[in-house]
């Protein structure tokens, strides 16, 4: 990218060298196009198949083309009740997914900013102890303590509630760690200046630190929203009532409908629901790419 200037000035060089560079460029682009195609193709085929009726997939598998059932399938996927109890439609799952994604992202950001603020900007007893208690949680993902976590939620009677769905997922220090690193990079003169001006900790946090962290908050929000939306194992355990299912949780139902039923499964509708499930996080990541990449790559420092 940056080297475009150099290569332009290098142009009047020996012929042999130029041709060599050209071949290299062709190879580079071929590799990248092949890679992009590998990434895109499975999803592209699924989108195409979601425009066909159920027979097309049953007979010939994924379709390469376009048919006339697109609107009908998406309509069915979003509004027609399905599932074992016949109470769940795509819209309900969509809103559950949104609640999980937003609730998780907002909750995590608020809680971890508060904790990180306390750890970085306050001098108090037990500071080191709190730090270690919080950061030990980085060591163990939810998956390894899944069964006892489920039992705790069950003993609180929180199964099939949004609280039970969201709060245990917040119990890791990734966000706190991220904000701690960022706060530590904020120049120390700012606190001193604020204190000389007579600003207390609350004023400093709201008027100076939060505005400074805007980009970081946005980046964290995108990453956490996608993470929350894409949760599978935890919602699978915690939600047994179909009215509480998220879209990603609903994938399990799609796959079971593909195998269980005696009639031909509604493949077109299933494919449509799959696309609906992946669309929101994909769009967010694509449109807010620069924030997202920044948040992701900064967090490991």
């Amino acid at each position: 990218m940056k080297s475009s200037v150099t290569s332009a000035t290098n142009l009047p060089k020996i012929n042999r060298r130029r041709r060599l560079v050209k071949w290299e460029t062709v190879i580079d682009h071929s590799v990248l196009i092949l890679g992009s195609a590998l990434m895109l193709f499975p999803v592209l085929l699924t989108i195409m198949t979601s425009s066909y009726d159920k027979l097309a997939f049953a007979k010939n598998g994924l379709q390469f083309g376009w048919s006339d059932k697109f609107i009908e399938n998406y309509n069915k996927a979003l509004f027609e009740p399905s599932g074992f109890s016949g109470t769940i439609d795509g819209m309900t799952m969509l809103s559950n997914s949104l609640i999980l994604g937003l609730g998780f992202a907002v909750g995590k950001i608020v809680i971890s900013m508060m904790a990180a603020y306390a750890i970085v900007y306050f001098r108090f007893r037990f500071a080191t102890f709190s730090f270690w208690i919080i950061f030990t949680t980085l060591l163990l993902p939810l998956e390894v303590r899944i069964l006892p976590s489920y039992e705790v939620i069950q003993s609180f009677g929180l199964t099939n509630t949004y609280t039970g769905l969201i709060v245990p997922l917040i119990a890791s220090a990734t966000g706190t760690f991220f904000f701690r690193q960022f706060f530590r990079s904020v120049p120390e003169e700012l606190v001193e200046a604020a204190r000389i001006d007579g600003a207390g900790p609350v004023k400093f946090f709201i008027d100076i630190l939060v505005p400074l962290s805007k980009t970081m908050i946005a980046a964290m929000f995108i990453i956490m929203f996608v993470f929350g939306w894409n949760q599978y194992l935890w919602p699978t355990l915690i939600t047994t009532e179909e009215g509480m299912f998220t879209l990603v949780r609903g994938i399990k139902n799609i796959i079971q409908s593909f195998t269980d039923s005696n009639a031909i499964p509604e493949y077109g509708v299933g494919m449509a629901l799959t696309i609906i499930t992946m669309l929101p996080p994909v769009l967010i990541v694509v449109f807010f790419q620069s924030w997202f990449v920044k948040g992701l790559t900064e967090s490991d420092k």
């Binding site: 108090f124 709190s130 917040i170 606190v191 900790p201």
Partner: peptide, 23 residues
């Protein structure tokens, strides 16, 4: 921890309580 830090009797505890409870 920063060198120029605040001291406050209960503020840090209040800030840490949500995270600690969940954890």
């Amino acid at each position: 921890m920063k060198r120029a830090a605040f001291t406050h009797p209960w503020m840090p505890v209040l800030l840490l309580i949500p995270q600690l409870t969940i954890i």
